[in-house]
């Protein structure tokens, strides 16, 4: 799960031959910057709301318990962050194939993995969509501050679409590129 972090960390690609691909990559870089911001802000919100709830309780302030917002922030952190991890290759996975296999084997594993991630993303995209519609209908909310649940459910389709986008670009890169290291979502 070695992290290929940073901004210009993608493997070199013959993007010159495929200008459309270069455009998609620059779009992806913009998206990744957005994902990083969302995750960092979610983390900051968690820290600040937790401390706010400590202050409110100990000083007996007549303010609500904000930590519910911090709790809700776990959802964008996980789902948008999950997409980001797919881009960076920083998801936890067992990397036996990378260590052992022949290039052909690695490519095959990478292809199956990509299919698996896409199937996963499709299932949770759909399920999150259903959930969001239901929550909008019922108006379900969390108990302390009444934070509505539908935006949290809406993060599933968003996160899964982003994840699928990153995987598709990785597959294209693998197909057109000389670099056969394979997809490591």
């Amino acid at each position: 799960m070695a992290e290929r972090g940073g901004t210009a960390a993608r493997p070199p690609l013959p993007a010159d031959r495929y200008p459309w691909f270069r455009r998609m990559q620059s779009l992806e870089r913009g998206i990744v910057a957005g994902e990083k911001t969302v995750c960092a802000v979610a983390l900051l919100v968690m820290a600040l709301t937790t401390v706010a709830s400590v202050v409110v309780r100990n000083l007996g302030l007549a303010l609500p318990n904000y930590s519910e917002i911090g709790l809700a922030a776990l959802v964008p952190l996980t789902l948008i962050g999950g997409a980001l991890c797919t881009y960076l290759g920083s998801h936890i996975s067992v990397e036996i194939v990378h260590a052992l296999g022949s290039p052909l084997l690695r490519r095959a594993a990478a292809a199956i993995t990509a299919v698996g991630v896409l199937a996963f993303a499709a299932i949770y995209f759909r399920s999150g969509w259903i959930l969001m519609q239901e929550f909008r209908l019922t108006g379900d909310k969390l108990l302390d501050l009444g934070t509505p649940l539908w935006p949290l459910a809406a993060l599933f389709p968003v996160g899964m679409a982003l994840m699928a986008f990153h995987v598709v670009l990785q597959v294209i890169a693998m197909a057109i590129g000389p670099d056969n290291r394979g997809v490591a979502p």
Binding site: G82, C85, T86, H91, I92, S93, V94, E95, I96, V97, H98, A109, A110, I112, T113, G116, V117, F120, A184, P185
Partner: peptide
């Protein structure tokens, strides 16, 4: 699933 390198959560 795990051995071909699918992320643990997804596998």
């Amino acid at each position: 699933f795990l051995l071909i390198g699918l992320p643990v959560g997804i596998a």
